[in-house]
Amino acid sequence: MKTSWRSASLVATAAAVLALTTACGQDGAPAAGSQNVGATAAADGLGGAGVGAGTGSGTGAGNGYGADGQQSSAAEPAGRLAVTDSAELGKVLTDSSGMTLYRFDEDTAEPPRSHCDGDCATAWPPVPAADATAGSGVDKAMLGEVTRADGSKQLTIGGWPAYRYAKDTKAGEISGQGVGGKWYALAPDGKKATLASLPGLSVKKTELGDIVVDKNGMTVYRFLKDQAWPTSVSACTGACLEKWPAVAPVPADATKGVRKKGLMGFTRPDGVKQMTVNCWPIYTYSGDKIPGDTNGQGIGGTWYAVSPDGKPVGAPKK
């Protein structure tokens, strides 16, 4: 007996749904009230994300640069640059007083250009180029300068404009690390200071248990208002996404210890490409300053670190 076109269509549709379920199944029903990232986030969604709430890590509400309007003193000379060894970040570049130097992701190195002015430059004072010299472990060829919009000369390292952080008050502090997901301590070659490179995603043992971390060792989180099935949908938009940056996709073979099922990337309606674990969208937290921080754990009762199989670590059971 011949199969009708309608029957064949139904069979094909069922097979497609089964395949999608296998690829993007979830460990529970889709969260009620989840919304597409192209829509306006509900007010309680932002509250749950901790947007605008102080984090105790220098990344709370205020001018958006992590200093809450804090005024900085006049720019101090850099003097003889040095390299210090950080247990969290490896080799970090400092000025002659031992203060950590930082770089800003919105700047450019080729050509060198600073995009930090006004309130931003108050929170992150530019390091003057005058009198900066290379100390032990620093290649003088890495030192340069860029002319800022106000005509002043700013030190560059490997082309990247260098800054201090107003909330660092003593030598060796790195409280600016990871602020806003855009500020990072400088390595001697101008790159972001980091320990030996990690896989794109890997597993770290912590007090919370085994959790997923990104290539920089930063804790990865899940938002309970997101959706994994039948397709990955993020409910974190706008100010929420600034607080909780989306983790960029990485190849599955560039991960270690993370469950391969549902390990894929997707393109959000806002054009941002985001990684998933077991089809759940994943994020880092701007309030985590150094590898190993879990300051985002439990915020708003909706944000939790991710286990190797994609489950939210420590989330209340439904």
Rank of each mutant, 00 (worst) to 15 (best):
T3N: 14
T3V: 14
T3Y: 11
S4Q: 10
S7D: 15
V11M: 13
A16L: 15
L18V: 15
T22R: 10
G25Y: 03
D27K: 05
P30Y: 06
A32S: 15
A32N: 14
V37R: 12
G38A: 14
A39K: 10
A42N: 12
A43E: 15
D44Y: 11
G45K: 00
G48A: 09
G56C: 12
G56V: 09
G56S: 07
G69S: 14
S73W: 04
P77Y: 11
T84M: 07
S86T: 03
E88V: 05
G90I: 03
K91E: 13
L93P: 11
S96F: 03
F104Q: 08
D105Q: 09
D107A: 05
H115E: 11
D119F: 04
A121Y: 08
A123Y: 12
W124K: 04
A130D: 15
D131L: 06
T133C: 08
D139A: 10
K140T: 11
G144S: 05
A149R: 08
L155H: 09
T156S: 10
K167L: 13
T169C: 03
Q177K: 01
Q177M: 02
Q177A: 08
V179E: 03
A187M: 09
G190L: 05
G190E: 04
G200P: 00
L201N: 13
V203R: 10
N216I: 00
R222K: 04
D226L: 00
Q227T: 06
A228P: 01
P230W: 07
T231D: 02
A235L: 00
T237A: 03
T237R: 01
G238C: 00
G238N: 02
C240G: 11
E242N: 06
E242L: 00
V258H: 05
G265R: 07
P269I: 01
V277W: 14
V277H: 14
I282V: 15
Y285V: 06
D293K: 01
I299Y: 02
G301W: 02
T302R: 04
Y304S: 07
G314P: 06
K317W: 03
K318G: 10
